[in-house]
Write a protein that binds this DNA or RNA. Sequence first.
RNA 1: GCGCCAGUAGCUCAGUUGGAUAGAGCAUCGGAUUUCUAAUCCGAUGGUCGGGGGUUCGACUCCCUCCUGGCGCGCCA
Length: 566
Amino acid sequence: MKNPFVEEIARQLAGPTGLAPDQVARSLSIPPAETQTDYAFPCFALAKTKRLKPTEIAQELAQHVHPGEWIESAAVNGPYLNFRVARGKFIAWALERVREEKTSYGCSDEGAGRTVVVEFSSPNIAKHLGVHHIRSTMIGNALTHIFTALGYKVVSINFLGDWGTQFGILMAAYRKWGTAATLEGDAVSNLNALYVRFNQEAKENPALRDEGRAWFKRLEDGDAEAVALWEQFRAISLAEFQKVYDLLGVKFEVLSGESLYDKLMPATIARLEKLGLAKIDQGALIVDLSTHKMPPVILRKSDGATLYDTRDIAAAEDRWEKYHFARMAYVVGGEQKLHFRQIFTTLQMMGYDWAKECVHVDFGMLRFQGAKMSGRQGQVVMLRQVLTEAIDRARQAIDQKNPALPNKEAVAAAVGIGAVVFNDLKRQRSKDVDFDWDAILSFEGETGPYVQYAHVRLCSILRKYGQPVDAAADLSLLTEPEEFALAKALADFNSVIRRAADGCEPSAVSQYLLELCGLFSTYYHKHKVLTEDAPLTAARIRLVDSLRQVIANGLRLLGMQTPEEM
RNA sequence: GCGCCAGUAGCUCAGUUGGAUAGAGCAUCGGAUUUCUAAUCCGAUGGUCGGGGGUUCGACUCCCUCCUGGCGCGCCA
């Protein structure tokens, strides 16, 4: 979205500074609010080349600025040249853009014709989704929306952990202790219990591990019994995952998994061997990465079975063949940083130019009272349980604050789940987070419900107004400083989305929404929208409608719902 | 030991490519509702931006070093 105010400043300054207009535009900064100005041109860089004091340059440049339709005035402030835009014009421009573009406001087509692959969620089968899975799932889900908003074709992949020795262990355990009842009722929990029991007993009796490995070998070799068991486990797990994905509103374009690459791995290994990159070391087939100061990639264990390194390499090759992506994002926890460096480096060594388009979108881990929270030790809080609890809390809040609300259940789900999702997306993804019921279920302050509540209030005003939004309203009546501040925030939306995409960082959007809703809440308390003054009301309604639209667009990017009442 | 990441208010965090007097939420205290939903708002309290050097007109931001915490380091994923 081109900002004509910035363009005008750039156009006027280009001559006197000797810079290209877009160079000027890029060096503009936002001055502090107290200056009552909107854009600042800092003169430090020019001071070097022109060998003058920055303050002198600012004064000199000020002579060349001609206020006009777009720019109200320019004022020297020390080494800065501060511009004040024509506020009425700016507000009209910003609101008009939102009115025209509606649900696509903030979007662009800069990614048109290019594909982004996003791999996320990626749970292991035969286990429940734990709270920690929310991180990959919702960060990845938000990224698919964000890239889609910028015009990219997005391929979202759920890459299931459905292969590996762990399933050999599971089969061995099932064959030992499993009954018909195991696969009924809460089958995933039953299977997981067997898995945990097996690991415990294996501590006493290490020979059990060999049984597990043997079963996995049978699976890799296509043994009918092993395959049948594995397929059963997988189907049971998928059905269970789907319930949670439905609650969260997450959809995948491709349901894939490590098992799929079992057949492609021999070819991948053959290519690596042909390139002279693979060698035998201590009985295992490895790719030596010592020149890159990394431990080797293990392609094949000494017992002949493969590991996930090999499967990830094969999967990457396959996806390139299928999608020719401009970017491929792996939304996986930060503890796997080394793994992805190894994989990307290996792909690079194989001569794949596209390896540099692969990014590991890492995120901090979820702790539970200081302890690492992930599946292996069995100490997990189930994601479904957290969501259910959040919905219950939201329902209680509704009963207390708005008992007459229609659609209580749907709203409770939107608000409760929204709280959990927003809580996960509001901070930079690389931060570790301590699992805290109070924080996750909080509906006050910087939370999802806070943003949804702002949306609800906006909807409520529009409902009470009861007339169509007037496209011809006289926006020059919007003269309050808060109205201008809101318009400026609205105008930022597209650059926020771009920043979120560049850094694969959904928190850029959540932080923006908090800021926007904060500005609105202040405005809401200070100024009344529905007044006796019809033209003023019509103009403010335009502002309200624009805010509603942008907040809704932002929430959708995060994968959250936008209730109209709560 | 080596590598990577982090350290900002009592707690949890923002802080655009280095820019003007470092901002929010929670907590604490004090206020606001005959008015568009108080899941809200306003005010107060609260800071050696981990320590020390350096780069520069200017550093929370970049470099070096030290301290603290986390993660990772060949047959788990």
